[in-house]
Computed example of a mutant assay.
Amino acid sequence: MLVLGVMSGTSLDGIDLALCHFSGFGPINYEILYAETIEYDREWREELSNLYMRDGSYLCSMNIHYARLIALQIQNFLSKKEVIEILKSRNTQNSDLLISSHGHTVFHEPDTGLTLQIGHGAVIMAMTKCHVICDFRSQDVALGGQGAPLVPIGDELLFGEYDACLNIGGFANVSLKIDGKRRAWDICPANIVLNRWAARLGDTMDRDGKYSQTGRLIREILDQWEHLEYYQKKGPKSLGREWVESIFLENVYESVFNPRDLLHTAVEHIARRIAADLPSSGRVLVTGGGAYHPGIINRLKQLTSAEIILPDKWLIDFKEALVFGLMGYLGWHNKINVLSSVTGAEKDHCSGVIFKNQNF
């Protein structure tokens, strides 16, 4: 089955599109056939970063407008020569394709029963004439779970040969087996804070660590971060932008400290927190944009005796889109795609809202 995984993360890099093929269920075979990241322009990046402060009416309208953006990017993706040839070689029409869309998270406060990902699936279905499955988090929160992380279903079914799977995106999160059960949790903020302070220097990210490596450690800030209450909690647990805004992105930091120093201190903090949550040995698969940050990876290698494994570029960049494609594949076939051992929900379940293309 061909599935187009669509992912937008909290780091606001852009929309990841991964055309994947899945077959079977025990085991599941997969292949990334073609993938691309569509970067947000400055207007969309600012819009999405400020959405959490908007009123309900505005959020409802953006749910539609953002869905239109996703749909337009999917249409452009499907019109590429390479993609057309792939679909033709597999005797697949656009109308047979399943789009599995995560949407973009505006709020995530599972302890209050609140999570919101915009990008309405009905709009995407109507514009692309493809089947769509979306809204994977709401059901888990309703069942008492954290609604995150969701990617560990892919770690369990596709990457079980690794002792741990680490993703360094907007947030860093880890997935591993403990006492025979898959466990996972958000470790700490990562690119969501690095990108913010890189923006103060006129850039979109701390590319290759070029800003953080010229900064100095702010010891008093590092000590504050290292002793945050969240790090003392046991999983299941997850992080949202609201928590990051209140603790890491307060204006007081930005008005007092040099952004290079904040970046340098954040890199040290990220590496320390990740190392504290990794197993003491074994093979760790590392993906997400943070896998390209030499400061984080080199410091992590110093802090842990586990083997840090960086896979090929497509897996680093598109693992989350791949796994949301997997979740769509499982959801379409009414198979479990969310693990309660990870999220803390009352049971394993099959999540996602389906919009069929109605034979357009």
Rank of each mutant, 00 (worst) to 15 (best):
S49V: 03
N50T: 15
M53I: 13
N63Q: 07
I64Q: 03
H65V: 11
Y66H: 10
A67M: 09
R68F: 02
I70S: 01
L72A: 12
Q73F: 09
Q73G: 00
Q75S: 05
Q75C: 12
F77Y: 10
L78C: 15
S79D: 15
K80Y: 05
K80V: 08
E85L: 12
E85N: 14
E85Y: 10
K88H: 10
N94T: 09
S95M: 00
S95D: 08
D96M: 08
L97S: 04
L98C: 05
I99W: 01
I99P: 00
S101F: 04
S101M: 03
S101H: 04
H102C: 10
G103Q: 04
G103M: 06
H104V: 03
H104Y: 13
T105E: 02
T105N: 04
T105C: 08
H108M: 02
E109Q: 12
D111T: 13
T112D: 10
G113R: 06
G113W: 13
G113Y: 10
L114Y: 05
L114V: 14
L114R: 13
T115W: 06
Q117R: 04
H120C: 04
G121K: 02
G121W: 02
A122D: 13
I124L: 04
M125V: 00
A126Y: 01
A126F: 00
K129E: 08
H131Y: 11
I133R: 02
C134N: 14
D135R: 01
R137L: 10
V141H: 06
A142C: 12
A142L: 13
L143A: 11
G145D: 07
G145L: 11
G145W: 07
G147L: 07
P149I: 12
L150P: 07
V151K: 06
V151Q: 05
